[in-house]
Simulated assay, not measured.
Amino acid sequence: MSQARLMDGTALARRIVEDAAKRAAALTDRSGAAPCLATVLVGEDPASVTYVRMKQNRCRRAGITSRHVALPAATTTEELVGTLEALSADPGVHGILLQHPVGEHIDERAAFEAIAPEKDVDGVTFASFATMSFGLPGFVSCTPGGIMRLLDEYDVDPAGKRAVVVGRSAILGKPAGMLLLARDATVTYCHSRTRDLSSVVREADIVVAAVGRPRLVRGQDIKPGAVVIDAGYNAGNVGDVDFDSAVERASLITPVPGGVGPMTIATLLEQTVDAAERQLRVA
C-alpha cells in the first residue's frame, strides 16, 4: 500500500482566513465597526503567551480588532468571572477567547460559563455544546470544527463509517464525536480506561487522536486505508499518532504541525466574523 496523502491544514486555513478577511472588511464598510476578538490570559505560561500572540497576529491579517486582557497568575475565579462578564456586556467586543488551561486554583468551567453564548467564538460553553449537538445555530468548538472542515476538503463523508475518537475532553474529544455523529458516523469514544485500545482503534474508518499523549496511536493500530486525524500536540512537534508508522497504513493523515492546528485558529477567526455579523445585524 502506498503512503497516505497528507491533509494540508495550512493551505485550507489560509483560504478560510482570506474569506473571513473579505467579510470583515465588508462588515466594517457597512457598519463602521470592525469585528473585535477579546483574548484573556491568566498568568505568563510561555506556550499560552505564544498561542495568544499568534492569534492576535492572525486577527490583524484578517481585519479583526484584537483586545488583549492580561491577568496575573494569582487571579481568582471570582475576578476572572468578573472580567469575562464585563467583556460579555461590552458591545464593542464580538467574540471572547479565554486561553486555557488556566491555573489549577481557578474553576475553569465557571469561567467559561461567564462568556455570553453569542460571544463564545471558541465554542467552550454549555450552550455552545448543546446547540452544536442538536444541530442548531451557534458556535462549534474550534478544533473539532476545523477537523470537520478538513474532512470535507478531502471528500471524506463520515456517513456510515466507524469513527473512533481517542480522548474525551469537553472542548475537543466530546464535541468531535458529536459532530461526527451528526454526520451519520457510528462513533466510539476511547479514553485512559479503555481496555485494549489498539483493538478498538483497529476497527475505525476514521481515527481522531485527541488525548494529549505523544505517539499513543501506532501504525499497527491503524486499519489499512483509514483516515487519521491527529489533534494532539506535544513537546517537540509530536502528535498523538506515531506518524512515521501510521503514514504507511492510512489513506489520509494530518501532519503535526500543519494539519489540525492552523484549522483551529482559522475557525476561531471565521466564527468571530460570524458573531460580529449577528450582533451588528449585518448579513
Score class of each variant (00 low, 15 high):
Arg202Cys: 12
Arg202Asn: 13
Arg202His: 15
Arg202Phe: 13
Arg202Thr: 13
Glu203Cys: 13
Glu203Tyr: 10
Glu203Ser: 15
Glu203Trp: 11
Glu203Ile: 13
Ala204Pro: 08
Ala204Cys: 08
Asp205Arg: 04
Asp205Ile: 02
Asp205Gly: 02
Ile206Ser: 04
Val207Gly: 06
Val207Trp: 00
Val207Ala: 03
Val207Asn: 05
Val207Asp: 05
Val208Thr: 06
Ala209Glu: 10
Ala209Phe: 09
Ala209Cys: 11
Ala209Arg: 01
Ala210Ser: 10
Ala210Gly: 10
Ala210Tyr: 01
Ala210Val: 14
Ala210Phe: 05
Ala210Trp: 01
Ala210Glu: 06
Val211Trp: 06
Val211Leu: 12
Gly212Arg: 04
Gly212Ser: 09
Arg213Pro: 02
Arg213Phe: 03
Pro214Glu: 00
Pro214His: 00
Pro214Gly: 00
Pro214Ile: 00
Arg215Glu: 15
Arg215His: 14
Arg215Gly: 12
Arg215Met: 12
Leu216Met: 11
Leu216Arg: 01
Leu216Cys: 03
Val217Ala: 03
Val217Thr: 06
Arg218Pro: 11
Arg218Tyr: 11
Arg218Met: 14
Gly219Phe: 11
Gly219Cys: 09
Gly219Pro: 09
Gly219Lys: 06
Gly219Thr: 11
Gln220Cys: 11
Gln220Ile: 06
Gln220Tyr: 13
Gln220Ala: 13
Gln220Leu: 10
Gln220Trp: 14
Gln220His: 12
Asp221Ala: 04
Asp221Cys: 03
Asp221Asn: 12
Asp221Ile: 01
Asp221Lys: 09
Ile222Ala: 00
Ile222Arg: 00
Lys223Gln: 07
Lys223Val: 04
Lys223Glu: 08
Lys223Tyr: 02
Lys223Gly: 03
Lys223Arg: 12
Pro224Val: 03
Pro224Arg: 04
Gly225Lys: 12
Gly225Asp: 12
Gly225Arg: 13
Gly225Tyr: 10
Gly225Glu: 11
Ala226Phe: 09
Ala226Asn: 07
Val227Asp: 02
Val227Asn: 05
Val227Phe: 01
Val227Met: 03
Val227Trp: 01
Val228Phe: 07
Val228Met: 06
Ile229Tyr: 09
Ile229Ala: 06
Ile229Lys: 03
Ile229Asn: 03
Asp230Arg: 03
Asp230Phe: 08
Asp230Met: 09
Asp230Gln: 07
Asp230Gly: 10
Asp230Tyr: 06
Ala231Pro: 09
Ala231His: 07
Ala231Ile: 00
Gly232Phe: 11
Gly232Leu: 04
Gly232Arg: 05
Tyr233Trp: 14
Tyr233Asn: 13
Tyr233Thr: 15
Tyr233Ala: 13
Asn234Ala: 05
Asn234Val: 07
Asn234Gln: 10
Ala235His: 15
Gly236Met: 07
Gly236Ile: 04
Gly236Cys: 07
Asn237Thr: 12
Asn237Trp: 15
Asn237Phe: 14
Asn237Gln: 14
Asn237Cys: 10
Asn237Arg: 13
Val238Tyr: 08
Val238Leu: 13
Gly239Leu: 03
Gly239Ala: 05
Gly239Lys: 01
Gly239Trp: 01
